[in-house]
Write a protein that binds this DNA or RNA. Structure first.
Lengths: 261, 261
DNA sequence: CCTGATGCTTCCGCAATTCAAAACCGTCTC
DNA sequence: GAGACGGTTTTGAATTGCGGAAGCATCAGG
């Protein structure tokens, strides 16, 4: 998915970084080589460079590469500056506390949804979303809420980035059916996740809009089917919209996604 | 090859990235140019590249650059793979719950301490708000605990990276006095922060050692002088050492700091 | 032991990318 | 409307990154 359009060495290095982090475990060069588009010496050199820069850490014993801690400290500034999280924190805390349900805050990045904060009501199901996790936009409540309120052009671009993998029976598998739902979401103002990403998990999501009408993220209330029905989630709608509006009002000027043409 | 040898475009790009994140707010190119070592067109091109790669986000209105959300998602993998946090989580949770004090988990990166997890007495969950922060090693409990147990060579290298800024009256201001304390810490097994970084904040810290004797991080119990005295912290020593030992036992193989010689 | 297989590392000539001076353009100020 | 200021583009030179091929380690089986 990483379109390595001639953006130079930096792009290549970052693509390797992506590849390593995507593996989800320490990896040897051999494994990377199999899926890499780069020839061996090039890959080797890039790994060297990234390791020198501490973006990767290298285990001398196992000869494996893993993401480096430097990323963790970089993310701290990113999180506190580039994300809605600091602004939204008090509001989603309040919402979570009053409803006793899980609240998620997400933003769009390269067609994917990035969860930038979350509140758990109980620790019963722990494996929902964790800060920094990414998920597809086309089959999550927050994703659809954002997509539905994107300007035409950006929306088209984002739709092109969707993979439309079928996670469950309810997952959208084409841009056409998704687009139809997005229109409905746009007019209604909220989006539902009807077990489209994971069986048993549903959510109601609202977009976060600035006063200029730009969508900068989304909030959702997520729960399990054995706790609530979709109709039941509807009861949360006013509180959710309220919360989203409060956040939007505070998120005055926000970066435009700066899509390179 | 030398250690500080800058390798290539990637290094330059990352240095710009660092500079932007370090500013702590959206910045214009002009501001970066003032402190940058790069001439204008070069800086411009690097910013372009980083923005294309979504490591930076660009606000068209204000013409400002800020860290990009991509960093947040990258950090997620880094945190869950490269850090001790996932392994240590249950143990520091238990420690925090039983003592009702703040627990910090930290690792060393480039001579600095990176907090990879924290537990407040009140809050259960880790968010990026509190993780990812960096602090100097020479004037924090966790930092000194780690430094004291580093192999000779790495220790020397780390000491060379310390700035020895005087934060409080108790701050070490030279490698000599620090080294003396490190020896003591090494034999005693715990380190104290005697208001060396911030007035009113003290802590007791223990290194996390693998079964091979390598130090991979540190845990600390931090508190305020109006809650406890340094002697009072001593009461926590057994529990702290216990916790550190448990974590160390589980942290089997860990990456060596991969210093390119 | 030797030998072949596997995978990491280094060499080195060629070519592409990066570099930065200078010029250009858009906007804001007086 | 002129001047200043900051951002963007152009361009020739040369640094750098590139990657085929060869060189090492390490390990397994003979």
């Amino acid at each position: 998915m990483n379109v390595v359009t001639s953006d130079g060495t930096v792009a290549k290095a970052l693509s390797v970084l992506d590849q390593v982090t995507a593996m989800g475990r320490p990896v040897r060069m051999r494994e990377l080589l199999e899926t890499s588009e780069f020839p061996k010496p090039t890959l080797y050199r890039l790994l060297q460079t990234l390791t020198n820069q501490r973006m990767l850490s290298y285990d001398k014993e196992q000869q494996t590469y893993a993401p480096g801690i430097r990323l963790v400290s970089l993310a701290h500034s990113a999180w506190s500056q580039a994300s809605l999280a600091p602004i939204a924190a008090p509001h989603i805390s309040a919402l979570g506390a009053s409803l006793r349900e899980a609240i998620h805050l997400a933003q769009l990045d390269n067609g994917q949804v990035v969860f930038v904060d979350k509140r758990q009501a109980s620790n019963r199901f722990a494996t929902l979303a964790r800060t920094g996790q990414v998920a597809p936009a086309y089959c999550t409540g927050v994703g659809k809420a954002i997509l539905a309120h994107l300007p035409k052009e950006e929306q088209a671009q984002a739709l092109r980035q969707q993979a439309f993998l079928k996670y469950t029976d309810a997952t959208h598998t084409s841009a056409e059916t998704l687009l139809r739902e997005l229109e409905q979401i746009h007019s209604e103002g909220v989006a539902f996740d009807r077990e489209e990403h994971e069986v048993g998990i549903i959510s109601i999501a609202a977009p976060i809009l600035t006063n200029t009408g730009r969508v900068v993220g989304a909030v959702s209330i997520a729960t399990a089917t054995n706790r609530h029905t979709l109709d039941g989630l509807n009861a949360f709608r006013p509180a959710l919209l309220d919360c989203a509006a409060l956040i939007g009002a505070e998120a005055q000027s926000w970066q435009s996604p700066s899509v390179p043409s």
